[in-house]
Design a protein around this nucleic acid. Structure first.
Length: 893
RNA sequence: GGGCGAUUAGCUCAGUUGGCUAGAGCGUCACGUUUACACCGUGAAUGUCGCAGGUUCGAGUCCUGCAUCGCCCACCA
């Protein structure tokens, strides 16, 4: 054995920084448009610039990195564009909170310019954090291409798109009911509203007729909005209220006369069947307001307090405080009929976490219908494929029922809307730069729209804006459309669908052809990771403790297919132990001898020294190359991780290395040379197959082993290919050979089982006898007695033809290739032996019973595929034969 | 109210177009520091595949219904 100084464990900490810097310095992450190779492009889902790395990012970016590294090894010119998102509301509120806390200032105290300066400062200070953290994970992003959604180039794209859509009539400004967040004081899109089920009340309020002859009772969940009521609606066919239609109501408290209208929207069954109508504060009421030309009275300020229109008494009160006082007042004056408990859904602002207020307001919108149609078509036509496919249903449903997109936000942090208003005549002008004068009345007094655009209005352009669009260039030509998008299903509407629409509208081409939707990471109890629960581990701590490779591997290994992941740090042991296992396999190999000269080829291998076990591992490897490539092609990352784990641990380490030991320790030089060659070849391929998921470990070992050539990184080595027919024939790889070796291993397990039954330590060498089942088995076993002896840890191994050659009864077991005996005098425990053989007999009998039932069933024999029937017949013969041997053994006891 | 998903060994999950003797990791039990690895090895135990029907020669896999859990969407005040 060679005396070499390799530690027993992989030092992930030192390897990570070392290799990451190495790759970056060498420029291996860079994607060049000039390359002649086929391009493979991914754009990162840009994390919020203020964010910190979470396990969600770890999963998402590991998946992208697997794809990128795999494609690079397959010879593609890769380009993975990283970047961050300015995240309008999130960032602005973060900085506002900070300013309030540290300096007791609001954004209004500072004014727009000063405030934005503070946000930029904040961004410079903390914005790079998540990017730095991503590097620790080992991701192969082309950092020179890093983009930020508020960069000049991207802002340029945003303005361009706004102007284009405006000119096309797809962007318009209008007064609509929108979702208003009273905390952030901005409009929101429908998607930014989260509906939560809550226990509320249904207040029944008496509304008297103005003429004093009767009253209607209305039911409402938001009594404070009655201050803005401009009608009461009933169903036109509601017999109870027929006579009320057309009359007027005297609105309580407010003392305003409002009409009773008939509208089919009203559900006769719900509440009292009479609905108060507040067009300025409810989307449905707004609809009725339009249909019946009702006045629309906005009774609230932008911060959720009541305004003057609500009446002097309520002016300035918070909406919920107002509700309370108003209800008390109604009760006092006898207008409150009853209060019912009522379970209903309340819309909350995603960021502000307060109930949103439907509010009539002047906003900018994008007409979505025409954009949606082509987006539906490309997915229906499978030009874009979703994985898992079921998400197409969600996607279709949203696009088929799409509503106009409210894109203006009353914030300061974001892309300012490129619209200018004439102070004289109010004319709207949409342009990149401020026009000289009003195009209508020619006054020179113009002012720019104060609002900014929804953050997603820049993100939806991401796949082409990052490459310099709207300016024509080579990057855009070469890298767009991109290939795969990896993202969470929670942003199908926000981002994925909109990117598809934008790609088709502005580039006339799909933005990507495959979308992989990741799982959501939860804690062990299945709860969402959240700050308040403090159940969200910091990935950097995990990397410190287990290593980036271990984290990457484990998270993919435990991720169920299309389901949520239940994560706990301890699960990273899987990856860490796996890394150690591989590390020691390499260490063991280097302890034997230096690397084979011709490790990279099998063409010149001496076939006469090639053992069946060598052929076996090459055959397994060959199949694994196909399996793993297929798994990655189909985005079956979980399968990829499990398959390679199984292959390396069970097949390569447990069987092949153990088998190779007989040659390593006792073989002749030519024999050793051949086995080293096979080992080195196979191990180099193993490292390559593993590289996408464990980049640091594989790079380290690639160098340790000496696999590097002029190509000085595993990143540059090719993804393994399957053997061609000629090589397969030369290496004598056949399914039959593979099966024979499998059966040999089965026999070895049976032998070990005997030892274990008698509590003989595995380390203790014992004699074994094998009675081969036939001539062929005998020849096969004879071909490598030394290897067999090693695997059995046998002190002596004899092939026998008949039980009489044994010195009395011996513990035994049957296997496909033959019967195994442990001929140790005095060891046998007849009762124990009977028990064991009995159990085996019962199992076989049960199996045979099933098989016989099938084979004696005419329907089965006639209707089942020939292949299946044939197999059953073979199994029948095999089991009957085994059973016979077993019975013999029992008789001989 | 619609839609989607889940239900398989103590736990976390695999099980392709129906052909299985239902698997893996962790955990459990027994034996063991063998000359890669105790972050290891060898062996073992453990399942009415949520429930009820149906189709089929054959169902964990397909169909119908039900139950429980989870998610998404929807204007019932």
């Amino acid at each position: 054995m060679r005396d070499i100084a390799i530690p027993k464990h992989f030092d992930s900490g030192s390897a990570q920084d070392r290799w990451y810097n190495y790759w970056e310095e060498k420029g291996y992450f860079k994607g060049s448009a000039d390359s002649a190779s086929e391009k493979y492009t991914i754009v990162i889902p840009p994390p919020n610039v203020t964010g910190v790395l979470t396990l969600g990012h770890v999963l998402n970016n590991t998946l992208q990195d697997i794809l990128i590294r795999w494609q690079k090894m397959k010879g593609k010119e890769i380009c993975w564009v990283p970047g961050t998102d300015h995240a309008g509301i999130a960032t602005q509120s973060k900085v506002e909170t900070y300013l309030k806390k540290e300096k007791n200032l609001t954004r209004y105290d500072l004014g727009r310019e000063d405030f934005l300066e503070h946000v930029w400062e904040w961004k410079e200070k903390y914005g790079g954090r998540i990017i730095e953290q991503l590097r620790k994970l080992g991701v192969a992003c082309d950092w020179e291409r890093e983009r930020f959604t508020l960069d000049d180039g991207l802002s340029d794209a945003v303005e361009d798109v706004f102007i284009k859509l405006y000119k096309k009539g797809l962007i318009y400004k209008g007064k609509r009911i929108i979702n208003w967040c009273p905390k952030s004081r901005t409009a929101l899109s429908d998607e930014e509203v989260i509906h939560k089920e809550e226990k509320g009340n249904l207040w029944h309020i008496k509304y008297p007729l103005a003429n004093g002859n009767g009253e209607l009772v209305v039911a409402t969940t938001r009594p404070e909005t009655m201050l803005g009521d401009t009608a009461v609606a009933v169903h036109p066919e509601d017999e109870r209220y027929k006579d009320f239609i057309g009359k007027t109501i005297m609105l309580p408290i407010v003392k305003r006369e409002i009409p009773v209208i008939a509208d089919k929207f009203v559900d006769k069954e719900f509440g009292t069947g009479a609905v108060k109508v507040t067009p300025a504060h409810d989307p449905n009421d707004y609809g009725m307001g339009e249909r019946h030309h009702l006045p629309m009275i906005n009774v609230m300020n932008d911060d959720g307090t009541m305004n003057q229109a609500a009446g002097e008494e309520f002016n300035g009160l918070d909406r919920f405080k107002c509700r309370k006082i108003l209800v008390e007042k109604l009760q006092k004056q006898g207008s409150l009929v009853k209060v019912e408990e009522h379970l209903h859904k309340v819309g909350y602002s995603e960021r502000g976490n307060v109930p949103v207020e439907p509010r009539l307001s002047d906003q900018w919108f994008v007409k979505m219908k025409t954009l949606a149609e082509p987006a539906l078509k490309v997915v229906a036509d499978k030009k874009i494929k979703f994985y898992p496919e079921r998400w197409t249903k969600t996607y279709n449903h949203w696009l088929e029922n799409i509503k106009d997109w409210c894109i203006s936000r009353q914030l300061w942090w974001g892309h300012r809307i490129p619209a200018y208003y004439c102070s004289g005549c109010g004319e709207i002008m949409v342009a990149k730069t401020q026009p000289e004068k009003c195009k209508k009345c020619h006054t020179k007094e113009l002012h720019r729209d104060e609002d900014v655009l929804d953050t997603w209005f820049s993100s939806w352009l991401w796949p082409f804006s990052v490459f310099g669009w709207p300016h024509d260039n080579n990057d855009l030509k070469e890298f767009y459309p991109t290939n795969s998008l990896v993202t969470g299903p929670d942003i199908i509407f926000f981002w994925v669908a909109r990117m598809i629409m934008a790609g088709l509208e502005f580039m006339d081409e799909i933005p990507f052809s495959e979308v992989y939707f990741t799982s959501i990471i939860r804690d062990e109890q299945g709860r969402k990771m959240s700050k308040s629960l403090n159940n969200s581990p910091d990935p950097l701590d995990v990397i410190d403790h287990y290593g980036a490779d271990a984290l990457r591997f484990s998270i993919i290994y435990i991720a169920p297919v299309g389901q949520d992941i239940k994560y706990s740090n301890e699960k990273c042991d899987i990856g860490k132990h796996f890394a150690t296992k591989i590390w020691n396999a390499a260490r063991f190999r280097l302890m034997q001898a230096p690397l084979s000269e011709n490790w990279d080829s099998l063409e010149n291998i001496s076939t006469e020294n090639l053992r069946d076990d060598d052929i076996w591992i090459l055959s397994k490897l060959d199949k694994k190359v196909t399996e793993l490539s297929d798994a990655l092609t189909d985005f079956e990352f979980h399968k990829y991780a499990h398959d390679i784990y199984e292959f390396i641990w069970s097949e390569f380490c447990d069987w092949y290395i153990e088998s190779a030991k007989s040659v390593f320790f006792k073989g002749s030089e030519p024999e050793k040379k051949t086995v080293f060659n096979v080992f080195d070849y196979a191990f180099s391929r193993i490292l390559r197959l593993l590289h996408p998921i464990m980049p640091f470990l594989t790079e380290e070992l690639y160098h340790e082993m000496g696999y590097v050539t002029e190509k000085d990184s595993i990143m540059l080595s090719p993804w393994p290919k399957v053997f061609n027919k000629k090589l397969k024939a030369q290496l004598q790889i056949t399914d039959e050979k593979e099966k024979l070796v499998n059966n040999k291993f089965e026999l070895i397990s049976a032998a070990r089982n005997i030892k274990s039954t008698y509590n003989i330590p595995n380390v203790q060498k014992t004699p074994f006898c094998i009675k081969p089942v036939d001539k062929k088995a005998e020849e096969f076993l004879c071909s490598d007695m030394s290897g067999l002896k090693t695997l059995l840890n046998a002190e002596m191994l004899t092939l026998i033809k008949d039980d009489s050659e044994l010195d009395g009864p011996a513990p035994s077991s049957v296997s496909s290739l033959g019967s195994v005996y442990l001929p140790l005098r005095g060891v046998i425990d007849i009762e124990e032996e009977k028990k064991k053989l009995n159990k085996q007999e019962k199992e076989l009998q049960a199996l045979l019973k099933g098989i016989n039932a099938k084979l004696s069933n005419e329907n089965f024999v006639n209707r089942a595929p020939e292949k299946v029937v044939k197999r059953e017949k073979e199994r029948k013969i095999e089991f009957e034969e085994k059973l016979k041997r077993l019975n013999n053994m029992m008789n001989n006891l």
